[in-house]
Structures are given as C-alpha cells and as structure tokens.
Simulated assay, not measured.
Amino acid sequence: MKISQKLEYACRALVQLSKGYDGKTLTRLDDLAQREAVSSNFLVQILNDLRRAGLIDSRRGASGGYLLSREPDKINMRQIVDAVEPAQLINTAVDQGESGSGVKQVWEDISVKLTKDLEKITLDSFSETQTMPDFSI
C-alpha cells in the first residue's frame, strides 16, 4: 500500500499534538517540524487541511500554535485521510467488459472494509504503540 508523504506527515503531526494533550497547550509550528524532521513550509499546508477539517485548532501570534480540537480518542484515521487525501478512499474501478462488474464489486467491498477499519483506529492508539524510554533508576 502506498501512503503519501502528506498523509504520513499529517499522522505524525497529529501524534505529536496528542502527546500530553490537555486541550489548552499549544505547540508551535517550528517545534512540530523539528520533532518530526519535516519542512515547516510543507507542514503548515498540511496543518491548514487538518484545521479546515476540524481536527485541530490554531492560534496566531507570538504565543500561537496548534492543538487538537478534541481528545485523541475522538479522532480516527478515516477523518485524517478524509482531511488530507480524500481521494485515497474513492473506488475508481469501472464495470466495463465481461469481468468489470465483478472486479468493481471486489474493490468496492475492500473499500468498505478499509473505511470501517480506519474508523476504528483512533489517534490515541498511534501514541500507545510508541515505546517510551524508561527513565527509572
């Protein structure tokens, strides 16, 4: 499966924003870009898509930045895909030729299953899979 760089960066930025989510602490663009080794010029475009989709909020100014618009367990992968790569979930198979309708139906079934699975995966599950360093002594 080929995942676009834009979708990957969107997921990575959202995982960063979900870390320590408290609903009020802003994260600066430069901090996000540095933590995820992403160009801030490209990242701001992605963040604008996420903001338009209602997944994040932003504040301007010297003390501005970005934060999730709701708890990480209320944001799922389908919402993220729809925000930055909506065409990713569109079935483009055609039902021409003798086998076309059968092939199109198979792709439609796969698309429906994928969409349902993406709805089950929430942003907090991304954060949970990351191993955190053990600082205990």
Rank of each mutant, 00 (worst) to 15 (best):
G102A: 13
L114N: 15
Q96A: 14
R60Y: 09
Y66K: 04
S63C: 11
E128V: 08
E36D: 09
P133K: 03
K116W: 09
A87T: 09
V38I: 14
L29W: 03
R70L: 04
L55E: 08
P86R: 02
S40N: 03
E108C: 02
V84M: 02
R35D: 07
W107N: 11
L123H: 06
R78S: 13
G23C: 06
L43K: 04
E98G: 09
Q96N: 12
L43F: 02
R78V: 12
K74R: 11
S39K: 12
D30T: 00
D49M: 04
V44E: 00
E119S: 11
I80S: 02
S111R: 13
R52V: 10
A37E: 15
I121K: 13
S99V: 15
S101A: 15
T122M: 06
L50F: 09
L47M: 07
I56D: 11
I46D: 06
A62F: 14
D82I: 06
K120D: 11
N76R: 04
K104N: 08
A33Y: 02
A53N: 04
P133D: 04
R52F: 13
T27Q: 10
S125K: 07
E85Q: 05
D117N: 15
K24I: 14
D22K: 08
V81G: 04
D30M: 00
N48Q: 12
A93S: 13
K74N: 14
V112H: 15
I56M: 09
V81H: 01
S127R: 12
I90T: 11
P133T: 10
L67S: 14
P133M: 10
D57S: 00
Q105L: 00
S69L: 06
Y66C: 04
V44N: 05
F42I: 13
A93W: 08
L47Q: 03
I46C: 02
L55I: 10
K74P: 04
